[in-house]
Design a protein around this nucleic acid. Structure first.
Lengths: 136, 136
DNA sequence: GCAATATGTGCATTTGTGTGCATATATACG
DNA sequence: CGTATATATGCACACAAATGCACATATTGC
């Protein structure tokens, strides 16, 4: 377990800090669930809908859809508006696009700072003999 | 549960199709885990490392880190190279940036196609009396 | 007021995931 | 060859998340 740090340049440190700050766990987690993705698809197609309409045709119980919608809202992916006894959910498109754009900007330096095995291939430590073939 | 679909324009259907096709569940899922994010941070800082070095200083057992690295690799986030008895993991920066860029391109139309409650506010159905205040 | 409808919540069950330990496998070293 | 080191895997356990049912709450319409 060698501990010599190689890439501790300001650029790398900034990338490690900035990039991972924008990794909104709640945002990613909300998008991991197949049912939630289906809900998003439906919202794209139908626009703002009440819970009953969204749950229509989906396999899960309305209460489950309601919970998923709450997750999406807490992640900032959609907004709600109560009209009478119904609660309408709608995607916050500008917010979602802005969030992904922010992430992209933050990780962009990774494209040239984290090229896989760029330095290790030319490195002179830890070479077990005859093992480094075709490194590049 | 009204079922009248409102936004079934070609643009919305294309968005629903294209955008959600690029929602790589494996990719998002890999980024949900705090430990995996820490691993990524370490890889940014140190560059390509063997498992032992990565696990150094982290709370979890090496075997756990090894598993997390396997998840990251299956998600395409990092690549591996075996050198001797060690396995080096390194971030695939170009791939990761390209993936996020693809997602951003796919969801961009959402910024103007999914403005929350744009149509519902002016819609004439489902108005329970006196409930729609300040819609906009 | 009461019945009907829409949504959210408590609870129990199931499923999935992270974790650590022990161990198997692979490679290096002597 | 055997021993030491590095990594991955099998297994068991803990904990979180998804699910469905029943029910509470809120609102409409009579």
């Amino acid at each position: 377990m060698n501990n010599e740090k190689r890439n501790l340049s300001p650029e790398h440190m900034d990338l490690a800090q900035t990039a991972l700050d924008v990794f909104d766990t709640k945002f990613f987690k909300a998008l991991c669930e197949p049912t939630r993705v289906e809900i998003i698809r439906k919202l794209v197609l139908l626009g703002g809908c009440d819970v009953g309409t969204i749950a229509e045709g989906l396999a899960q119980d309305r209460s489950v859809i309601s919970r998923h919608l709450a997750v999406l809202e807490r992640a900032g992916i959609c907004q709600t508006r109560k009209i009478g006894r119904r609660v309408f959910y709608d995607l916050d498109g500008p917010h979602n696009v802005a969030k992904v754009a922010t992430i992209l900007e933050a990780i962009k330096p990774m494209a040239y700072l984290c090229k896989p095995f760029e330095e290790i291939s030319g490195h002179d430590k830890h070479q077990e003999k005859g093992s480094r073939k075709g490194v590049a």
